[in-house]
Design a protein around this nucleic acid. Structure first.
Lengths: 143, 143
DNA sequence: GTTATTGCAAACAATTTGCATATAA
DNA sequence: TTATATGCAAATTGTTTGCAATAAC
């Protein structure tokens, strides 16, 4: 399962970066492995951590997210509401994009091979080795 | 020319929304028509307005950008640095996307018909009438 | 022991808002 | 004349940071 794979991959990567296995960071990483497959804000993480005992300070959550992002373990999105959202980045490179309902704000994830192919070709056409990409669609359900 | 067309379109649309032709808003709109074809921040707009006499308070710039965005006259982007950037939205629907250099942060605009087609098809596949979309590519120049 | 990590609270930066004044209609 | 728009400064909000205490190695 993707989440388990991500968790062990993340552990390994953090260890490999010379970082210690500390309570706070571990709590964030495990929470992400459990709930982080789609777009969580830092505040949401803090809240969920606070539900469980002791762990979960704002600073630690932000610091951990920054670390994970630098290591390529999470993707970060800056949706127009001025708050960043994160989701785990599958080590296999497989990923989805997001469709936002223009009325409700509801977010749906989708994958599309044709889209990925088009993006790949753009990189070639522009002479750029792509390191990442984000696609956000907005629309309303056809009535 | 696109900018002139945008300016008259914007004027008309603002008028049509029952808004008054005021100095502050007009200055922002005209500045956008002149310089706003690609990704300006609110602060950059304020600075450029301040270069000219009298006009250009932070509040008015933000309020105008909000209005323009609601009316679909500008596109807003939230690049990961916590600051929003705006550019004029061509009334014809023609538009470009952005490639960010992973090393320098430099932004290049591009258009791609194949990409647009792929996105259109995704809308159909998901049963959604698309109202907008953003694509951001990140990469480094092939050496 | 030494060094990384934590948590709190203070600091920050972008953006928003209250309100009294000025201005377009 | 009347409602809208402005500008200032204060308030808000998401995020970052200094620092002393704590925990990993």
């Amino acid at each position: 399962m993707t989440r388990d794979r991500w968790l062990s991959h993340a552990d390994e990567r953090l260890r490999g970066a010379g970082l210690r296995t500390s309570a706070g960071r571990t709590a964030v990483v495990e929470l992400l492995a459990r709930d982080g497959d789609c777009l969580l804000s830092a505040q949401e993480l803090v809240d969920r951590l606070r539900a469980q005992p002791g762990a979960g300070s704002t600073a630690t959550v932000y610091r951990t997210l920054e670390t994970l992002h630098e290591l390529g373990l999470v993707r970060r999105f800056d949706g127009g509401e001025g708050i960043a959202r994160y989701e785990i980045a599958d080590p296999s490179g497989e990923h989805h994009h997001h469709l936002v309902d223009a009325d409700t704000g509801e977010v749906v994830a989708f994958e599309d091979a044709e889209l990925e192919r088009a993006i790949h070709r753009i990189g070639e056409r522009l002479g750029v080795r792509l390191t990442g990409h984000d696609v956000i669609l907005r629309g309303r359900r056809a009535s």
